[in-house]
Design a binder for these strands. Sequence first.
DNA 1: TGTTAGAATGTAACCGTTTACATTCGTCTT
DNA 2: AAGACGAATGTAAACGGTTACATTCTAACA
Lengths: 350, 350
Amino acid sequence: MSAESTIRDVARYANVSIATVSRVLNNSPAVREKTRHRVEEAIEALDYSPNPIARKLSRGRTHTIAVVLPLFTLPSFVERLRGVHQKLVDNAYDLVLYSIESDRQWDEQLARLASLSRVDGLLLISLPPNDEQTALLLENGVPTVLIDAHHDTFRHVIVDDEAGGQMATSHLIELGHKRIAFLSDFLDTPFHQSMRLRYRGYRGALAVADIPFRDSYHVCDTHGRHEARVLTRDLLKLDDPPTAVFASSDTQAIGVLDAAQDLNVRIPDELSVIGFDGIRDAEYLDLTTIEQPLYQSGIAGAGILLDMLRNEPDGMRTETVLPLNLIRRATTAPPPAGRAKRTGSRKGGG
Amino acid sequence: MSAESTIRDVARYANVSIATVSRVLNNSPAVREKTRHRVEEAIEALDYSPNPIARKLSRGRTHTIAVVLPLFTLPSFVERLRGVHQKLVDNAYDLVLYSIESDRQWDEQLARLASLSRVDGLLLISLPPNDEQTALLLENGVPTVLIDAHHDTFRHVIVDDEAGGQMATSHLIELGHKRIAFLSDFLDTPFHQSMRLRYRGYRGALAVADIPFRDSYHVCDTHGRHEARVLTRDLLKLDDPPTAVFASSDTQAIGVLDAAQDLNVRIPDELSVIGFDGIRDAEYLDLTTIEQPLYQSGIAGAGILLDMLRNEPDGMRTETVLPLNLIRRATTAPPPAGRAKRTGSRKGGG
DNA sequence: TGTTAGAATGTAACCGTTTACATTCGTCTT
DNA sequence: AAGACGAATGTAAACGGTTACATTCTAACA
């Protein structure tokens, strides 16, 4: 219906020029109070609101940020996205969402987004661009900020995953554990930088405590609760099973808990479990974990990007490190006193 | 960097008019093969890509859909959003995201979005507009589709929640349960239409089976796993506790399971639990549930909206009902044989 | 009262496309 | 070879704002 009134309609109605209307809209001080009133009345009367597209074209900025993230189902991504959303809404920026479900998509989408003029900036969550992509972005001058990814060129917000891995492992060691498994995603993909670092932290902590690393205690599969469950079953069936598992994410840690239940292994009496991330379910399940500020990482990343858009882009540190926090809860405890090997296999309830 | 080349640059380079370039861009048939080639070469050479903003302004359509949803943390919303995203990406539409975290926001955002020209259409997830909002949307002619919400005016995709409530309850009744509790959100808010309908289904099934409704078996709180846990503890401490709980969402059903564990009540031997939605965790936890096609609801809703934008808007049914599915899993079973009343209170593990 | 500076407003170009309409080109009749 | 007609291309006016610059007020001063 309503053929949306334009700035010209308002100008005509208020008996001023469109420039004046525009000034009122952008509250320029250079307009007399009386005139301003007249224009405001006209705006009111015509129920006018400026066409954002025209405005974007004219100003050359879109007031829109593209957010790209993978694996949209995982709670940690959602939590980060919430932070981003909040920050953008607060600053009246629009957020257009690109979820990446395959590697090819990632390349395609980035190529499309790189041609500026579509959005003012790019927020990449857990998706470090490769050299080619980086070149493309730089060439086109697209302001870009990464969340949960390291990068030489782009500003990024991260946590010290290696330190986190160390914290988690040390916590277990301090409790008296020696047989400590590490469960993670595959570590060789271009993503999962953080997982690799957590792994390094794990190795580091072992080394410091003079505990030899055992290959059989390091297990990988694609990310997921179910995958972790399966991996853990195997771990627990080893001749010399671990007394503690450090899972590289809470989602995976929950899978570990499932497996323990499957095999009737009591937590934390018989097996300690520590996760990483601090998603809601972790609190809920009383899971000991290394908590990272997920929501805050979204806030921070978006904040940095907005700063870049406003101020001169330089003079900021390129790396923002958010703090980690060991949250001791109910899934970690000293290892069982007797070193008896378990080979439990009774199937437990849901 | 690169001061993005424009259509004029291309025209100059190819020695044609901008109209011709535009024709090539929109593959109009009215351009000679030779000319087309020349233009394409120019485009290639200048690495040109059309400015989407200018295009939007000129065409009067934004090729963008706004998606509005509440409670962005809950998995069922995320799942629906994924479906929407997929459909929009497939059709090269942009998706701008508005998450609503409070009632006030809902009003504000809708008002902003109602002024067309910002987006081509609106997809509202679990957010039925009230009369005033409806009027606004109609007045401005914003194509709108609702997902998981009923409405007289707007096309919407739903499931038959009342039938679902009935299915769930009947399932329990058929297993032999008579003392069946219903756990849900508060039913009096403008949202939660579906919860109300599921409740009606519950009441209906009871009535059919001649089981009197008991007030004490109907408990409400705001949505959430924790809230459900607390409510359930109270339920189980009743003098005559239910032998089965129908939770109006899987998230809440999971809270019920938590409470059962707290009180050392065995599932399904001592208590049957059925949920609603079919989120991933439900499958994971072997939770019996009424599964609704969440992802599909997103696909369907977005599909309808896109159709509206393409074709003449009328001639489609306004209501799309997706099928429900009872998934029998491990959390429902016949009630315990002896009718002994339980008053368990031992605190269980995590 | 006539200047004049500075404030208020207006004019018109521009942002980068699409597209209605005008023009030119090539080809086919006759 | 002139005319006619359709196909190919060009011209210019939108789309709805912002903004540099030109113009007109207003008021203060000499």
